[in-house]
């Protein structure tokens, strides 16, 4: 099985977010960058699949120079190849532009399945996988928590409100991975050493035959006007309930019922 895993390199979810001077992007000072957590599920699935059935895992990103560290992390966990399409600063959050670039880089490669995280943490759009599928004319299954890999086809479970859907699809297909799919491994020291020697294929996006405007953000489909911190929340009413929990509970219920009219 040949697997392509699309990875995005994002601020650690515990990062303190400050707004940059342009009022449109985050201030990147002090930010630690990680492989987007959902992409870890996508990678793990591909690794387990090729361990069981043979084949290889190619991890791909469209991102700036620093995203190479994310690719190295994936190589250290066991990915066989890495492809770095350099760029992406102008298309941050523009899922359709990102999907176009990835589709152009993937279309002439051989693969049985493309795995991506259900969303890139931070921008949280949850769109690239489905758009990629449409651009490559492939079926897709999103929000996947379980996959049964058969010959040339899959049966996948996707999480929906109040249950799950059982989806059958032929391969090749695009799958977007949700938590629950598997338990991502950590990189072992041996893998980290080996990853240092594995090459990262660099792709110049302007050689992908795409409209220059797409890469320059001039064909944008997502226009970020401004980025703000959330409004300060007013301090809540906090009741001390250590000494008399019964009285505290009674007061809380009264407030919720009469003041907040919450039930």
């Amino acid at each position: 099985m040949k697997c392509i895993v699309c990875m995005t390199h994002v601020p650690d979810t515990a990062s303190i977010i400050r707004i940059g001077a342009d009022g449109q992007h985050i201030d990147e000072t002090g930010i630690k960058w990680i492989v987007s957590p959902y992409d870890e599920y996508a990678l793990e699935e591909a690794l387990q699949l090729t361990e069981a059935k043979g084949g290889e895992v190619t991890v791909m990103t469209y991102g700036p120079q620093r995203a190479e560290a994310g690719l190295r992390e994936c190589l250290a966990r066991g990915a066989h190849n890495a492809v770095h399409i350099l760029g992406g600063e102008k298309t941050l959050g523009d899922s359709f532009a990102i999907a176009k670039v990835l589709a152009a880089a993937i279309k002439d490669r051989e693969f049985d399945v493309i795995l991506v995280g259900v969303k890139g943490v931070g921008t949280d759009n949850s769109q690239v996988g489905q758009m990629l599928a449409e651009l490559l004319d492939l079926p897709h299954v999103s929000n996947v928590v379980k996959v049964e890999w058969n010959d040339g086809a899959i049966v996948a479970e996707r999480e929906v409100e109040g249950g799950h859907e059982v989806v059958e699809s032929p391969l090749p297909a695009v799958l977007t991975a949700q938590k629950g799919l598997n338990e991502p491994r950590y990189a072992a020291l041996k893998g980290i050493m080996a990853a240092k020697r594995k090459p990262v294929e660099k792709v110049d996006p302007s050689a992908l035959g795409l409209d220059e405007d797409v890469l320059a953000g001039a064909e944008a489909t997502y226009n970020l006007r401004s980025l703000e911190l959330p409004p300060e929340k007013q301090a809540g009413k906090i009741i001390q309930g250590e000494d008399d929990p019964q009285a505290a509970a009674a007061e809380l219920v009264k407030l919720l019922h009469e003041e907040a009219k919450a039930f």
Binding site: F96, N125, S126, Q127, E134, H140, S142, A220, T221
Partner: peptide
């Protein structure tokens, strides 16, 4: 919803546009 978030990007790409999600 789970369905809306799955479908909207597929529709958008079919129409050659992007999307504003959630």
């Amino acid at each position: 919803t789970a369905m809306g978030r799955d479908l909207a990007p597929r529709v958008a790409a079919k129409l050659g546009v992007g999307g504003l999600a959630d």
